[in-house]
Protein backbone atom coordinates (compact mmCIF):
# COMPACT_ATOMS: atom_id res chain seq x y z
CA UNK A 1 0.00 0.00 0.00
CA UNK A 2 1.15 3.47 -0.72
CA UNK A 3 0.27 6.15 1.72
CA UNK A 4 0.95 9.34 -0.15
CA UNK A 5 2.82 12.00 1.76
CA UNK A 6 3.47 14.11 -1.23
CA UNK A 7 1.92 14.41 -4.67
CA UNK A 8 2.88 16.23 -7.84
CA UNK A 9 0.36 17.53 -10.33
CA UNK A 10 1.01 19.38 -13.50
CA UNK A 11 -1.67 22.00 -13.88
CA UNK A 12 -1.82 24.12 -17.00
CA UNK A 13 1.83 23.31 -17.59
CA UNK A 14 3.02 24.24 -14.14
CA UNK A 15 4.15 21.59 -11.68
CA UNK A 16 2.65 21.76 -8.22
CA UNK A 17 4.03 19.72 -5.37
CA UNK A 18 1.74 19.29 -2.39
CA UNK A 19 2.19 17.71 1.00
CA UNK A 20 -0.67 15.39 1.86
CA UNK A 21 -2.01 15.59 5.37
CA UNK A 22 -4.11 17.56 7.74
CA UNK A 23 -1.70 20.33 8.58
CA UNK A 24 -2.25 23.88 7.47
CA UNK A 25 -1.59 24.12 3.76
CA UNK A 26 -1.59 20.36 3.25
CA UNK A 27 -3.85 18.73 0.74
CA UNK A 28 -6.23 16.55 2.71
CA UNK A 29 -6.65 13.03 1.33
CA UNK A 30 -10.36 13.72 1.13
CA UNK A 31 -9.94 16.88 -0.91
CA UNK A 32 -11.42 16.88 -4.40
CA UNK A 33 -9.62 18.20 -7.41
CA UNK A 34 -12.24 20.93 -7.73
CA UNK A 35 -11.44 22.09 -4.24
CA UNK A 36 -7.69 22.09 -4.88
CA UNK A 37 -8.04 24.01 -8.11
CA UNK A 38 -10.50 26.56 -6.88
CA UNK A 39 -9.76 27.17 -3.25
CA UNK A 40 -6.09 26.34 -3.11
CA UNK A 41 -4.75 27.52 -6.43
CA UNK A 42 -7.25 30.18 -7.46
CA UNK A 43 -8.15 28.43 -10.69
CA UNK A 44 -11.73 29.50 -10.19
CA UNK A 45 -12.77 29.06 -13.81
CA UNK A 46 -14.16 25.58 -13.24
CA UNK A 47 -17.11 25.77 -10.90
CA UNK A 48 -18.24 23.70 -7.98
CA UNK A 49 -21.93 23.52 -8.74
CA UNK A 50 -23.59 20.22 -7.95
CA UNK A 51 -20.55 18.52 -6.44
CA UNK A 52 -22.03 15.22 -7.51
CA UNK A 53 -20.64 14.69 -10.99
CA UNK A 54 -23.96 15.51 -12.59
CA UNK A 55 -23.52 19.03 -13.98
CA UNK A 56 -20.10 19.17 -15.63
CA UNK A 57 -19.45 22.72 -14.38
CA UNK A 58 -16.25 21.47 -12.77
CA UNK A 59 -15.00 19.60 -15.84
CA UNK A 60 -11.26 19.69 -16.53
CA UNK A 61 -9.03 17.68 -18.78
CA UNK A 62 -6.91 15.07 -17.02
CA UNK A 63 -4.35 13.30 -19.19
CA UNK A 64 -6.34 14.13 -22.28
CA UNK A 65 -9.79 13.16 -21.02
CA UNK A 66 -12.56 15.27 -19.64
CA UNK A 67 -13.54 14.37 -16.12
CA UNK A 68 -15.75 15.85 -13.44
CA UNK A 69 -13.13 17.22 -11.09
CA UNK A 70 -15.53 17.03 -8.16
CA UNK A 71 -15.52 13.26 -8.53
CA UNK A 72 -11.74 12.94 -8.36
CA UNK A 73 -9.61 13.07 -5.25
CA UNK A 74 -6.56 15.24 -5.66
CA UNK A 75 -4.37 12.51 -4.18
CA UNK A 76 -5.50 10.21 -6.96
CA UNK A 77 -4.35 12.72 -9.53
CA UNK A 78 -0.74 12.32 -8.50
CA UNK A 79 1.44 12.44 -11.57
CA UNK A 80 -1.35 13.53 -13.86
CA UNK A 81 -1.44 16.47 -16.18
CA UNK A 82 -4.47 18.70 -15.71
CA UNK A 83 -5.73 21.42 -17.99
CA UNK A 84 -8.32 23.88 -16.78
CA UNK A 85 -10.14 26.63 -18.63
CA UNK A 86 -7.41 29.03 -17.54
CA UNK A 87 -4.85 26.94 -19.40
CA UNK A 88 -6.58 26.99 -22.74
CA UNK A 89 -5.66 30.42 -24.00
CA UNK A 90 -2.18 30.53 -25.47
CA UNK A 91 -0.31 33.68 -24.41
CA UNK A 92 1.03 34.10 -27.92
CA UNK A 93 -1.46 32.40 -30.18
CA UNK A 94 -4.38 33.81 -28.26
CA UNK A 95 -7.68 32.16 -27.62
CA UNK A 96 -8.30 28.54 -28.38
CA UNK A 97 -10.48 28.19 -31.49
CA UNK A 98 -13.26 26.83 -29.33
CA UNK A 99 -13.10 29.89 -27.09
CA UNK A 100 -13.18 32.16 -30.11
CA UNK A 101 -16.07 30.25 -31.63
CA UNK A 102 -17.98 30.62 -28.36
CA UNK A 103 -17.55 34.39 -28.55
CA UNK A 104 -18.47 34.53 -32.21
CA UNK A 105 -21.63 32.53 -31.75
CA UNK A 106 -22.58 33.92 -28.35
CA UNK A 107 -22.45 30.38 -26.94
CA UNK A 108 -23.18 31.28 -23.35
CA UNK A 109 -25.53 33.34 -21.31
CA UNK A 110 -24.60 33.63 -17.67
CA UNK A 111 -21.33 31.89 -18.46
CA UNK A 112 -21.20 29.88 -15.28
CA UNK A 113 -21.31 26.48 -16.93
CA UNK A 114 -19.33 27.63 -19.97
CA UNK A 115 -15.83 26.68 -18.76
CA UNK A 116 -16.98 23.11 -18.15
CA UNK A 117 -18.66 22.96 -21.54
CA UNK A 118 -15.57 24.29 -23.26
CA UNK A 119 -13.29 21.80 -21.51
CA UNK A 120 -15.45 18.83 -22.43
CA UNK A 121 -15.63 20.10 -26.01
CA UNK A 122 -11.89 20.60 -26.03
CA UNK A 123 -11.24 17.02 -24.92
CA UNK A 124 -13.56 15.80 -27.64
CA UNK A 125 -11.84 17.83 -30.34
CA UNK A 126 -8.42 16.72 -29.11
CA UNK A 127 -9.29 13.08 -29.70
CA UNK A 128 -11.61 13.65 -32.62
CA UNK A 129 -11.09 16.84 -34.63
CA UNK A 130 -14.20 16.32 -36.73
CA UNK A 131 -16.86 14.89 -34.51
CA UNK A 132 -20.37 14.46 -35.86
CA UNK A 133 -23.24 16.52 -34.54
CA UNK A 134 -24.38 13.53 -32.50
CA UNK A 135 -20.93 12.95 -31.08
CA UNK A 136 -20.80 16.56 -29.99
CA UNK A 137 -24.15 16.58 -28.25
CA UNK A 138 -23.46 13.20 -26.67
CA UNK A 139 -20.06 14.35 -25.40
CA UNK A 140 -21.75 17.29 -23.73
CA UNK A 141 -24.61 15.25 -22.30
CA UNK A 142 -23.10 15.55 -18.84
CA UNK A 143 -23.01 19.33 -18.94
CA UNK A 144 -25.78 21.29 -17.32
CA UNK A 145 -26.87 24.62 -18.74
CA UNK A 146 -30.05 26.24 -17.58
CA UNK A 147 -29.95 29.50 -19.55
CA UNK A 148 -30.23 27.34 -22.70
CA UNK A 149 -27.01 28.14 -24.48
CA UNK A 150 -27.21 24.66 -25.97
CA UNK A 151 -28.30 25.84 -29.40
CA UNK A 152 -25.49 28.33 -29.80
CA UNK A 153 -22.92 26.01 -28.21
CA UNK A 154 -23.80 23.29 -30.69
CA UNK A 155 -23.76 25.85 -33.49
CA UNK A 156 -20.22 26.96 -32.58
CA UNK A 157 -18.91 23.42 -32.23
CA UNK A 158 -20.59 22.12 -35.35
CA UNK A 159 -19.07 24.95 -37.32
CA UNK A 160 -15.66 24.10 -35.91
CA UNK A 161 -16.14 20.43 -36.70
CA UNK A 162 -17.18 21.28 -40.23
CA UNK A 163 -20.68 19.90 -39.87
CA UNK A 164 -22.78 21.57 -42.49
CA UNK A 165 -26.54 21.48 -42.05
CA UNK A 166 -26.27 20.61 -38.40
CA UNK A 167 -28.24 23.70 -37.46
CA UNK A 168 -30.68 22.94 -34.69
CA UNK A 169 -32.15 26.42 -34.41
CA UNK A 170 -33.24 28.84 -37.08
CA UNK A 171 -34.33 32.43 -37.01
CA UNK A 172 -36.86 33.82 -39.43
CA UNK A 173 -37.27 37.59 -39.51
CA UNK A 174 -40.50 38.87 -40.97
CA UNK A 175 -38.70 42.10 -41.84
CA UNK A 176 -36.67 40.24 -44.40
CA UNK A 177 -39.79 40.13 -46.50
CA UNK A 178 -40.69 43.78 -46.08
CA UNK A 179 -40.17 45.48 -49.38
CA UNK A 180 -40.31 49.15 -50.11
CA UNK A 181 -41.42 50.20 -46.68
CA UNK A 182 -43.37 53.36 -46.13
CA UNK A 183 -41.55 55.21 -43.37
CA UNK A 184 -42.67 55.50 -39.80
CA UNK A 185 -45.47 53.75 -38.03
CA UNK A 186 -48.19 55.99 -36.75
CA UNK A 187 -49.14 55.69 -33.10
CA UNK A 188 -52.69 54.62 -32.60
CA UNK A 189 -52.91 55.04 -28.87
CA UNK A 190 -50.53 57.53 -27.43
CA UNK A 191 -49.54 57.07 -23.84
CA UNK A 192 -49.15 59.91 -21.36
CA UNK A 193 -46.31 57.90 -19.80
CA UNK A 194 -44.37 57.18 -22.94
CA UNK A 195 -42.05 60.12 -22.70
CA UNK A 196 -40.55 58.78 -19.52
CA UNK A 197 -41.33 61.75 -17.30
CA UNK A 198 -44.59 60.66 -15.78
CA UNK A 199 -44.97 57.76 -13.43
CA UNK A 200 -48.09 55.65 -13.42
CA UNK A 201 -48.07 55.69 -9.67
CA UNK A 202 -48.09 59.44 -9.49
CA UNK A 203 -51.32 59.74 -11.45
CA UNK A 204 -53.64 59.88 -8.48
Amino acid sequence: MIKKDCIVLSINGRKFKFSVGTGFGDVSPSETLTHTLRRRLGYTGSKESCDAGACGCCAVIADGEAIASCMALTVEMDGKSITTIEGLEDPIEGLDPIQQAFIDEYSFQCGYCTPGIIMVAKALFMSNPHPTANEISEALSGNYCRCISQYTVLRALNKLAGNENAELATFTRASDEVEDPIPVRQELYLSPYANGHVCAHSLD
Binding site: C50, A52, A54, C55, N134, S137, E138, L140, S141, G142, N143, Y144, C145, R146, Q150, Y151, V153, L154, L168, A169, T170, F171, T172, R173, A174, S175, R185, E187, S191, A194
Partner: peptide, 27 residues
Amino acid sequence: SLIDYKWRPFNEFPAYDSYIMESQIDS
Protein backbone atom coordinates in the same frame (compact mmCIF):
# COMPACT_ATOMS: atom_id res chain seq x y z
CA SER B 1 -29.90 16.01 -6.57
CA LEU B 2 -29.29 16.80 -10.21
CA ILE B 3 -29.83 13.11 -10.87
CA ASP B 4 -33.27 12.91 -9.29
CA TYR B 5 -34.35 16.39 -10.34
CA LYS B 6 -34.71 15.98 -14.09
CA TRP B 7 -33.48 18.55 -16.55
CA ARG B 8 -32.89 18.34 -20.26
CA PRO B 9 -29.41 17.24 -21.30
CA PHE B 10 -27.52 18.47 -24.35
CA ASN B 11 -28.21 15.38 -26.42
CA GLU B 12 -31.97 15.80 -26.26
CA PHE B 13 -32.55 19.29 -27.51
CA PRO B 14 -35.34 19.69 -30.03
CA ALA B 15 -35.04 21.85 -33.10
CA TYR B 16 -36.04 25.42 -32.33
CA ASP B 17 -37.33 27.72 -35.04
CA SER B 18 -38.38 31.25 -34.31
CA TYR B 19 -40.44 33.72 -36.22
CA ILE B 20 -39.69 37.29 -35.28
CA MET B 21 -41.47 40.48 -36.25
CA GLU B 22 -40.05 43.92 -35.60
CA SER B 23 -42.91 46.34 -35.68
CA GLN B 24 -41.29 49.30 -33.88
CA ILE B 25 -43.49 49.68 -30.84
CA ASP B 26 -43.24 52.98 -29.06
CA SER B 27 -41.71 51.71 -25.85
